[in-house]
Design a protein around this nucleic acid. Structure first.
Lengths: 116, 116
DNA sequence: TACTTGTTCTAGCTGAACTAGATCAAGTAG
DNA sequence: CTACTTGATCTAGTTCAGCTAGAACAAGTA
């Protein structure tokens, strides 16, 4: 599993981990039942604190993307739904936003408002 | 102009101001040339610090939504583009995300990645 | 039984966000 | 010219989220 982290980014480290792993699950690069590296292991390879990785794992669990159990580790959950259509919709909204010269922040803020 | 702020929100106050005003400009509720309240004035009515409002105004200026000049205040900028299509695309992507049980955070993270 | 691995707790550090007050500079209005 | 308005800039103190660190605990595995 390939996940990278940017210390200079404005996004919190645990959010970067969440985003990276979540994107891979949605893209099908990580399949249901597949096991993620142990938190201590991933933390060591990324030179992060265990707590940071664990927090990311807990967010992914809360969102339903993985299952966590002591002794067994983190496993990609079985999740219903086809993400292909979502990907196409996302591409379209990004194209439209770019056309209007919106910043990523502006677009995501608008979407967050529409989500309420 | 109606803008509200939620002290309990995880979003920074200045971001909430930016999002609120930006949304009104895009929705056409605030028109090009129209003047926003003076920073000191808006700060007083929302019980915020002037610096917080000024920061929001500066973000909106950086994004091209308003013009700022000393003595004259903040004025909605003339901006090309039709936002109706964007609104429809946003609605579609939100519907799709809801269908898949995604959280707002998950959706915005995916969009941010697609924007890169 | 020994090991793995997530869970929980305490604790300290850092930087962003917010507030506060003061001063400056560009523009407006009399 | 003068007084007022209003954004720009600077310093400074407080609070809180994020990150790190270390330890002990509990559920599961071999």
């Amino acid at each position: 599993m390939l996940v990278t982290v940017d210390l200079a980014s404005a996004l919190p480290l645990f959010e970067q981990l969440v985003a990276g792993i979540r994107a891979q699950i949605i893209a099908g690069e990580l399949r249901a039942g597949e096991r993620l590296p142990a938190a201590r292991e991933l933390a060591a390879s990324l030179e992060l604190n265990v707590h940071t990785v664990l927090r990311a794992y807990q967010v992914l669990r809360d969102e339903g993307f993985i299952d966590l159990r002591r002794g067994r580790g983190a496993v990609v959950a079985h999740r219903a739904g086809d993400y292909a259509q979502l990907g196409r919709e996302i591409d379209r909204v990004v194209v439209e936003a770019r056309k209007l010269g919106l910043t990523p922040n502006a677009l995501t803020a608008l979407i967050r408002k529409a989500f309420e």
